[in-house]
Design a protein around this nucleic acid. Structure first.
Length: 875
DNA sequence: TAACTGGAACTAGCA
DNA sequence: GCTGCTAGTTCCAGT
């Protein structure tokens, strides 16, 4: 290892110490980074000085910053109680290494000053820099690409960790190791940020007894760090040695580490794991599932309020503070009321502000203060729309650092194509990064980074940047190309799980966290020199070799319904489907229990390599109306496709009627996006959408409500929300936020952040919970995708594959650890009574049945709220 | 030659 | 403790 690399690793070790907010870290201010030689936006000294400045940061102060002041402002904003300066330097360093040219006025111009975004604690410098140097000291780490550090080094790291724990452990905490902010590395500001917002932006909603936000799962008593350290670090620290093979297994987090630590007697294992620990939400939301109902909420722990603020939130970027809107106080309504907090909390949680019921509030940001990467943005606003016209393939094998590039992300034909509509005045810079595909709010993926692909086949010019530790590609959008571009320069780099998981504050686990979304965003210059940011997402892309090879994927099937008598032949097309595959029909009850299961007889003579024909089994249960069931393709244990919806109708006549009602279903050719088995999009169809064939061709028909609500008119059946609520307690493990509650994943090509303008007036939350059509135009789907983008972590292939439809997630394979009690999941937000009440009412009164606080949660951006909460609701 | 691609060996965790 | 399975990572060979 070169000395340089070594130095960098050392620097990063320091960085992580910084992340850990070592109380005594003044040395960090003066540490010299290799970056010092770089043309930083501001000299290190300045940073250091700023790090000592009072942190009474306001939007005004931030805005007043000069061209470079943004960065400074940012620094000033987040430097407050901790020493984050050094953590910025390397980023700047890296960033400055990357050409800044070609940045359009669209926010890129002038450079996006490296801001300490909410996620900035995940520092993932390029190549070796991605790795936490501290991890290099870990005996668990691979030696293949890093040096082995002495035990002494190891101990040093351990010591750092211990200090960190001490720093954040307050006597008032239920758990010595836990706090909602627990993770000093809550880069995404996930849950801790949410808590913060709940508390300071929605103080009323944060009432422990009233707030739907406040779920017992928000236990302050568990730190994500706990699992990381105890499972992954402490247990291995002492004497473990790398195995002969320097592969990840040595550094792998134990599978169980991702499991809920519910009721752990360990003082470090809070009975209520904090969901917010992870800035980007662990794939395995189990890490913060299973919170104890009895666990005191974070706010119930007096004296810990400041601790509710994720440490990462202290590293605030000015943009986050000041951009929300002219009328918005930088710190939110209550921000200034908490002076003490104001000093600590300078970070407005990114993904929350948009959820405030302020329809029409445009996603404007200062030119120097682009939105954080985990900030929800619409795909459309006003006349502008950023659209992913050609989706990437659902599978792209990412390459490791130890491998060569595996090429650019591809589409079915060519490469993904992104187009910006409504603007063609000048060149803009389209940003691209790899985001998560789980059921929580979108955020940069911890284990995957975009990778610039070079080669003769690459025609698109792009540049790499590092924003908040996330690599971002910038691709020009040229007016001469109709503001459209083919993304043929973007590959996906896989970071080793061990390297990321053991980072401080990193609570996501990489295992089975192999799905990503490609995120595109662009800033459109406005007359007031602000930038209007739009963002769109790709469908989930499976990045692991194994999954891509083994998981069957249903691309299309026909027909989509038949008589309850069965007997019809069902043709299923897709990948990894063979005559050896099995097709299982099933019906799940609201509680997730299996109501009916039946193997479909395969017709081998009609099956082929990529398709299978089965005979639809008879539905031998009495039903008053059409029944929505699901089927999936199985290649064996844990190798099951996403469940597909299938409808049994009572008779041919009934079927005809159904067809008449849902004519598009007959034309279903591709019900699923060419994605891997994600969640069925049904739950995404929360709009009463016009039945249109313009729906994305891969759109999957939502689960019919008839199964659950046979007595309810299809036109008014609140199918999705209800079902969603049934299935995914996970949804409630997510941030108590609308946008974070998506119970189901969408594998739809989505504009996740589509903004309905203005959504609120046109789509009252409750109306969103209703739908008559299972088919929702993409736009409308997307409007709720941001809220619904739920991806149940593929912690279990089987489970994930079957979690397509509501009620299945937890039922195909019962995994108690993933089914925390409702109470622990905050399911009281909407009780069963609420649901029943809603069901029993006329649709016209449905809206009124949504509690005001749900309305309050209305996500104007996504055109959802109460509905979504409803989605995640009761059981 | 470099980039890309497909496959598989190897290892560890878990049931 | 053994076995089988699963998943992550690395390596190899071919294009």
């Amino acid at each position: 290892m070169s000395s340089l690399k070594y130095a960098e690793e050392l620097d990063f070790r320091l960085i992580f110490e910084g992340d850990g907010r070592q109380a005594a870290a003044p040395d960090l201010h003066v540490k010299t980074l290799p970056t010092s030689s770089q043309p930083l936006a501001e000299p290190p000294v300045s940073q250091e000085l700023q790090s000592h400045l009072p942190c009474h940061f306001t939007a005004d102060t931030y805005q007043s910053q000069g061209p470079q002041g943004g960065a400074q402002g940012n620094l000033r904003a987040f430097d407050c109680p901790s020493i984050e300066i050094t953590s910025i330097a390397p980023i700047n360093h890296v960033e400055t290494e990357i050409s800044q040219e070609g940045l359009a006025a669209g926010g890129a111009e002038g450079g996006f000053l490296e801001t300490s975004w909410s996620r900035d604690q995940l520092y993932l410098p390029l190549d070796h820099c991605y790795r936490d140097p501290a991890l290099s000291q870990s005996p668990c780490s691979s030696l293949s690409s890093r040096s082995w550090m002495s035990d002494h080094s190891c101990e040093s790291f351990s010591h750092v960790y211990d200090e960190e724990v001490e720093l954040y452990d307050l006597p008032t905490l239920g758990s010595p190791a836990g706090s909602p902010l627990g993770s000093p590395g809550c880069g995404g500001g996930a849950f801790g940020v949410e808590l913060w917002q709940q508390k300071y932006q929605h103080p009323s909603a944060f009432n422990p007894t009233l707030s739907p936000f406040q779920s017992p799962l928000q236990s302050p008593c568990h730190s994500p760090r706990t699992s990381v350290t105890e499972d992954s670090w402490l247990s291995r620290r002492p004497n473990s040695r790398p195995s002969s093979r320097p592969t990840s297994p040595c550094g792998k987090r134990r599978h169980t580490s991702a499991e809920p630590l519910t009721c752990s007697p360990s003082p470090h294992h809070s009975p209520s794991p904090t969901p917010g620990a992870s800035p980007r939400g662990s794939v395995t939301d189990e890490t913060w599932l299973g919170s104890s109902p009895g666990a005191p909420g974070p706010l119930q722990v007096s004296g810990c309020q400041d601790l509710d603020v994720p440490s990462k939130t202290r590293r605030t970027s000015g943009s986050q503070l000041g951009h929300v809107g002219p009328e918005d106080p930088p710190l939110g309504e209550e921000g200034h009321e908490q002076e003490g907090l104001a000093e600590l909390v300078l970070h407005v949680p990114s993904h929350f502000s948009w959820n405030k019921p302020k329809p029409g509030n445009p996603p404007l940001f200062g030119a120097l203060t682009p939105p954080p990467l985990d900030w929800p943005l619409p795909s459309q606003y006003d006349r502008y729309e950023l659209k992913l016209e050609v989706q990437p393939k659902s599978y792209h094998r990412a390459h490791y650092e130890t491998e060569g590039s595996r090429g650019a992300i591809k589409a079915a034909e060519g490469h993904p194509v992104v187009k910006l509509s409504g603007y063609s005045e000048q060149q803009l810079s389209l940003q691209l990064f790899i985001g998560t595909a789980d059921d929580r709010y979108l955020r940069p993926h911890a284990f995957y980074q975009v990778h610039r692909v070079t080669g003769k086949t690459v025609t698109t010019t792009c540049q790499e940047r590092l924003l908040g530790g996330t690599k971002v590609l910038e691709v020009p959008l040229l007016p001469e190309n109709s503001m459209s571009t083919s993304i043929d320069c973007a590959g996906i780099l896989k970071l080793r799980n061990a390297d990321i998981e053991l980072k401080k504050g990193e609570t996501d686990i990489g295992r089975k966290n192999t799905r990503v979304r490609v995120v595109f965003r662009v800033g459109i210059p406005q007359w007031d020199r602000q930038l209007l940011w739009l963002q769109t997402l790709s469908i989930p892309v499976e990045c692991s070799q194994r999954s891509g090879q083994e998981l069957p994927q249903v691309d299309s099937f026909s027909p989509t319904s038949c008589s309850v008598n069965g007997g019809e032949e069902l043709l299923i097309r897709g990948s990894n489907i063979s005559t050896q595959s099995r097709v299982m029909f099933m019906e799940r009850g609201p509680d997730g229990r299996s109501l009916w299961e039946m193997d479909a007889r395969v017709v081998p003579e009609k099956s082929s390599e990529s398709s299978i024909v089965v005979e639809v089994p008879r539905y031998n249960k009495k039903t008053p109306g059409p029944v929505q069931v699901q089927f999936y393709v199985s290649n064996g244990k844990r190798r099951k496709s996403l469940a597909q919806n299938f409808t049994f109708h009572l008779s041919p006549a009934a079927g005809a009627l159904l067809v008449k009602q849902e004519p598009w279903e007959r034309e279903h050719v591709s019900h699923h996006p060419p994605a891997f088995t994600f969640y069925d999009s049904s739950d995404l169809s929360v709009h009463r959408a016009p039945r249109s064939h313009q729906t994305h061709p891969l759109h999957h028909p939502p689960v019919s409500s008839t199964t659950l609500f046979p007595h309810t008119s299809p036109a008014i059946t609140p199918q999705i929300p209800l079902q969603s609520s049934i299935i995914t307690p996970r949804a409630f493990t997510g941030p108590p936020q609308v946008s974070a509650l998506p119970p189901q994943t969408s594998s739809l090509p989505s504009q996740v952040s589509t903004m309905q303008t203005p959504p609120f007036p046109t789509h009252p939350p409750t109306s969103l919970a209703l739908q008559s059509s299972p088919v929702v135009p993409q736009r409308e789907q997307s409007s709720c995708l941001s809220s619904c983008r739920s991806f149940v972590p593929p912690t279990d292939g089987q489970k994930s594959s079957l979690s397509t439809s509501p009620g299945q997630v937890l039922n195909i394979k019962q995994e108690p650890e993933e089914q925390p009690s409702l109470g622990s999941l905050g399911l009281q937000e909407i009780t069963l009574d609420d649901v029943n009440e809603i069901i029993d009412r006329d649709i016209s009164s449905l809206s009124s049945s949504v509690r005001p606080d749900q309305f309050d949660q209305y996500d104007w951006q996504h055109g959802s709220s109460g509905a979504m909460r409803f989605c995640g609701g009761p059981q």
